[in-house]
Design a protein around this nucleic acid. Sequence first.
DNA 1: AAAATTCTCTGACTATAATCAGAGAATTAA
DNA 2: TTAATTCTCTGATTATAGTCAGAGAATTTT
Lengths: 293, 293
Amino acid sequence: MNVQQIQQVRSFNRIVTERVGALNDHFLGRDHPLGEARLLWEIGTEGAEIRALRSRLGLDSAYVSRLLRSLEGQNLVEVKASTADKRVRYAYLTKAGRKERAELDRRAEEFARSLLVPLSDGQRTRLAAAMKEVERLLTASLVNISIEDPANADAQWCIGQYFAELNTRFNAGFDPTLGISAHPHELTPPAGLLLVARLRQEPVGCGGLKLHANAPAELKRMWVAPQVRGLGLGQRLLQELERHAREAGVTVLHLETNGTLTEAINMYRRSGYQEVAAFNDEPYAHHWFEKRV
Amino acid sequence: MNVQQIQQVRSFNRIVTERVGALNDHFLGRDHPLGEARLLWEIGTEGAEIRALRSRLGLDSAYVSRLLRSLEGQNLVEVKASTADKRVRYAYLTKAGRKERAELDRRAEEFARSLLVPLSDGQRTRLAAAMKEVERLLTASLVNISIEDPANADAQWCIGQYFAELNTRFNAGFDPTLGISAHPHELTPPAGLLLVARLRQEPVGCGGLKLHANAPAELKRMWVAPQVRGLGLGQRLLQELERHAREAGVTVLHLETNGTLTEAINMYRRSGYQEVAAFNDEPYAHHWFEKRV
DNA sequence: AAAATTCTCTGACTATAATCAGAGAATTAA
DNA sequence: TTAATTCTCTGATTATAGTCAGAGAATTTT
């Protein structure tokens, strides 16, 4: 990281706050207080759980409740208890509410248009491309990685997604009981560990490490959710796992993988993993890799 | 402009507001209300006129006054009347105020750093480049162009800058009285017009059009401020002038220019101007162009 | 069956961010 | 010299945004 990059980020923040932030608020909050407008927007055409709205917008429960009362008073929103769990309440837009939301949508589009209008075709194309790049990289920087208990719900979800994907991609399907194990207790310190990557609280990837005394450690359960592929998350997980391995005194890392997982194989090669002869009898593996760390 | 581009802008706005906007406010406003922090920031280490602060931040005079009283109460700011005009008052940071502002600066930097930390070197480089591109193009889209009275202060300032630049760049200097005229009355409707481009209220470019009954119209006084070159502003001015010319029934546009102004010459060529034989005796011109509109 | 937890709500309160009217001093224009 | 304008300020008032404590109903855990 260098000084120019930091300066660039700061200067970007300045103009983007000026151009996007200010006008954004102005367009959204023209007929309603900003809080109400944001809530109206987040409820969406399908309705939403109130607790979900609260956590998405980061608002206090009392405050959301009051905003909803105000929107109800304006006949824009209806609140109903869930049938399954009567503590949980849903907010829905009324017909008038949907109309109001459509108006917000129109304004947001008008605003986007106003940014593009003064530019030439070529400039518009370049702006869209640069925005996409910024967006992708900011998304990448929004992902955080932490060690988690392999038994918890999100970890299990990731591993489940991983199995499901292998089952789809492997020619003969995939049965996790046939391969080499990576049970929760094997991925829990001090036996090993599991990293879970999250984007806005949602799990979007995982990677496990099995430690062995006096033998190479094994990388298992490397998975990145399809919607965040191409953001370098696989490499980040790999680097983190390697760091933890080094800290645990590991000198050699092993991993095996299936020939259909070409992106993963490329990533391992890029990251310094050398293909070696089979060091185990994993039935789903076609390639075995190792790296000294 | 297409739907994908608009979608891209909207999606960019969303994530940038989330990532930059929210955290920005949070970092700035940790020890002070946001309004105070912004004011403290804007006063800067050199101090500033209160009326300038008001217009830069777009705040009501009563509100700024109260914010300043509060900052004075915290010993962060001193307000003094100007010696030249005792109605105008200046705000200065005290030593404590400068310290506080340095702290805000540190946080802004820390925030920029936090965006970059999770990324790889390659990603950081790409992010900085994409941010620069977005920033440049958003700046370009922030420029607005309007017809103005050539006699007003900003128009005069632009023309003055234009003359000063020609004087520097032409080998033999430049004396506006020797060339073909473009007096204010010749650039005022219906005889002609003058466009002034502004970025955040500041004049950053101009371009004039002299109309002649039954003869080609002339482009004069095309100038773009150095700090906004490369944003396509010259082309935009040119297109606007051509549009006004067409609306006035013009079919052929003429312009002449000096050989040292290579960027301008390239721009005219790119914009469809054909070099033709000299159609006047402008002493500073080396090239004569025309375009049918 | 009792205890703990979850979810939403109301009441009471505070801080922040304004806005409007108008006054007083200084300056500029007529 | 008078009138108009500019600049900043105070007083009065409002809207917005948010916080904290605790209650009541429903559900889950023990």
